[in-house]
Computed example of a mutant assay.
Amino acid sequence: MADPSRDPEAGLDIDRGSTPRTPRWVKAFGAVVVVLFVPFAVLHLTGRSLGGPGSHTPAGGLGGHAPPEGSHG
């Protein structure tokens, strides 16, 4: 028996093994996402974040604030 998807008399010529190509806009969107995500991930994993709590304080302490003069603390 012949394959019904290839039967010229039935008017069917379906190639079940092929898939439609990915549209160009999908590829472009994926490239943009990768270009934006990879640097963010690298910065995050190396500890050099883009901002957030504590990003404006020096690495050595509590923001460089000295106790006021005359205090006992």
Rank of each mutant, 00 (worst) to 15 (best):
M1Q: 13
A2L: 14
A2R: 09
S5Q: 07
R6M: 12
R6C: 07
D7I: 03
D7P: 03
D7S: 14
P8I: 09
P8M: 04
E9M: 09
E9H: 11
A10H: 08
A10W: 05
A10G: 11
G11L: 13
G11R: 11
L12M: 10
D13P: 00
D13N: 15
D15M: 04
D15N: 12
D15Q: 09
R16Y: 12
G17I: 04
G17P: 00
G17C: 11
G17N: 14
T19G: 05
P23K: 01
R24N: 03
R24M: 08
W25I: 13
K27P: 00
K27H: 05
K27F: 03
G30L: 08
G30P: 00
V32L: 12
V32C: 08
V32K: 02
V33Q: 09
V34H: 01
V35T: 15
L36H: 02
V38T: 13
V38Y: 06
P39E: 02
P39A: 08
F40L: 15
F40T: 06
A41R: 06
A41M: 08
V42G: 03
V42T: 06
V42P: 00
L43A: 15
L43N: 12
L43F: 14
H44W: 15
H44P: 00
L45M: 15
L45W: 06
T46P: 00
G47I: 10
G47F: 01
R48Q: 06
R48N: 13
S49M: 07
G52Y: 02
P53I: 01
P53L: 10
S55Y: 05
H56Y: 09
H56V: 02
T57V: 08
T57K: 14
P58Y: 07
P58R: 13
A59R: 11
G61I: 05
G61L: 03
G61P: 00
L62I: 04
L62G: 04
L62K: 10
G63R: 03
G63M: 13
G63H: 08
G63W: 04
G63L: 05
G64C: 15
G64I: 10
H65D: 12
P67S: 10
P67N: 11
P68D: 12
P68M: 09
E69G: 12
S71Y: 03
H72L: 06
H72T: 10
G73H: 13
